[in-house]
Design a protein around this nucleic acid. Structure first.
Lengths: 331, 331
DNA sequence: CTGAAAGCGCTAACAG
DNA sequence: CTGTTAGCGCTTTCAG
């Protein structure tokens, strides 16, 4: 049904190879011939079948993004950065939501491999077993891991400077004069969050640390526990904005005013943090840029592989930034 | 590098056609032969090259989702529903963010067509010109439009019952006893929003309608205008949650308490509406289900096309629902 | 039930 | 500079 390279060739009175060369800007085509071919291709509304091209070149100009959930605003922002960057380079991005299930994640990986994507971005927990990791590495396609600071050295890694972010938050609260400070975070042993805790504790060695669920609900629950057990706390550093929102909600419920009675600082700087009341002071992660960086690396590596080279995995840590809004005050 | 169907065939001592048939569950293969082939394929860790298969079958098991911006929580939710549904059927989903630019949108459409996706979901404004529309229709792949109530009859359409939603909101505010009610919405002549307005006006014929930008900032701006020009208004129906958040923010700035001094109802029911203070009463759109429905239609139509049939475009309107939270009160 | 052969639409040597 | 030839890896008639 659609017009093929053969149709163009016939119409132009040349062979398909000449058409291919003309359209792909390869050397060795008479300028006049090329122009003629290009004109005819345009007139026929010809568009090369990328599947066919992919089969012969071995490259699909497609990347995969395997994350836990696109509804998480953090990932939405990363995805947008990744897609924009991919688009600029003529690549497409396929989206996979694997939640936190290793099995789902691995199914997606295999499916993407079978579709011969040129690269893979993944986040999500404890990826696969040793064999699975080897399987991926053996596939020979570039992989960048998102936010997995201490992972194997076989893949590239992009993450924000979580240690620095935690330190920034802790130091800021101390500078405001707070002395009884709590840190509400997710599960222990969670790469990112552990780094944030470490950074925080380096600035507030006597900080109270409470673990829970890294969600709005989790934030509510941890805040309840905190208010019950440590009513003298004057400031909290939430390991994510979602947790911070829970803290603010719970503070409201207890009649505590933020920031009058309680200072709260978050982490991530998701869009809503500027919209809620009070506007949330938080540590900004360069989410969009992380997506861009991941794709940038992938494309570079894919080109190297196409050129016969073996790319070196790259580990890039992006800077964070304190965003002062209205949820903290000096005491 | 990767193991091909030929490797399996050689190892099994049969030809590639037998391997193909065995693996695809086609009729006419000796049970014993099939089992042997399957076992060997598994042992070799064989996974068919989907690009090659796509070239011959003409189907890629891939769908495209062209939206304005995945960072918009509305689209994130739709995307998640779409991706889940696609995944269940063995399809993948490629994500494109075209913002509101017709040119970008058309580039994505063409790119997806060239990659031979099996179907297309699009939202975004005033798609293309007549020729562009014809070009898409001529491509012969199924298309479903998101939230474009009054579009051409050549494509399928999924949208929420916006008229009903507007009516629900208006009737609710009246039932609470409000008489001076304002409706803050986006640009005029915007399919969805116009429907919401119409529904609202059918319940509140004397409602004040203000047009602006359909964003948080736009909500702030419209609220300022409203408070200046109509200080006696006791309730507002915002055409989207984003606008409602702006109204609440601006109310705070003016010292108006929500809902004590001003009742606010939104539209969409994005996740944050349950997180902000006060929790927002709003009209729920079945976003996830809209994504699912879109993919469901696409896949059904793709199968029909593969079977030689010509699918009939389908128009599906999904029901909405009033979510009562704490931003409205009776007067 | 299985094999041989053709071909999807394109690129890429290799000749001429 | 252009044409001929050979596949990429798979499915699918068509024979046997």
């Amino acid at each position: 049904m659609p017009v093929t390279i053969r149709d163009v060739a016939r119409e132009a009175g040349v062979t398909v190879s000449t058409v291919s060369r003309s359209l792909n800007g390869a050397y060795g085509v008479n300028q006049t011939t090329r122009e003629k071919v290009v004109a005819i291709a345009r007139r026929l509304n010809y568009s090369p079948n990328r599947v066919a091209r992919g089969l012969v070149t071995g490259q699909t100009q497609t990347l995969a993004l395997i994350i836990s959930d696109i509804r998480n605003p953090f990932f939405a922002e990363v995805a947008r950065g990744a897609q924009d960057c991919a688009n600029r380079a003529g690549f497409d991005l396929v989206l996979c939501n694997a939640d936190l299930e290793p099995a789902a994640q691995m199914r997606y990986v295999r499916s993407m491999l079978a579709k011969r994507v040129d690269g893979l971005i993944m986040n999500s927990v404890m990826l696969f077993s040793r064999e699975e990791r080897d399987e991926l590495a053996a596939s020979g396609i570039p992989v960048v891991l998102l936010n997995r600071p201490r992972q194997t050295k076989a893949f590239s890694i992009i993450c924000a400077d979580n240690v620095q972010g935690g330190k920034l938050a802790g130091a800021y609260l101390r500078k405001l004069g707070h002395r009884k400070i709590a840190h509400l975070t997710g599960p222990k042993q969670h790469g990112n969050l552990t780094d944030r805790s470490d950074g925080f504790l380096s600035a507030c060695a006597d900080g109270i640390v409470i673990h829970g669920e890294q969600t709005f609900r989790g934030g509510c629950a941890m805040a309840r526990q905190l208010f019950d057990e440590h009513p003298d706390v004057t400031a909290v550093f939430a390991a994510s904005d979602a947790i911070a929102f829970g803290v603010i909600r719970e503070a409201w419920n207890r009649g505590l005013r933020v920031p009058a009675d309680l200072s709260v600082i978050g982490f991530d700087n998701v869009e809503v943090s500027g919209i809620i009341h009070p506007p949330l002071t938080t540590v900004h992660q360069p989410k969009y840029e992380m997506g861009e960086a991941a794709v940038e690396i992938l494309i570079k590596h894919a080109r190297q592989i196409a050129g016969g080279a073996t790319p070196m995995p790259e580990h890039r840590i992006l800077g964070v930034q304190l965003i002062e809004r209205e949820s903290c005050r000096a005491v």
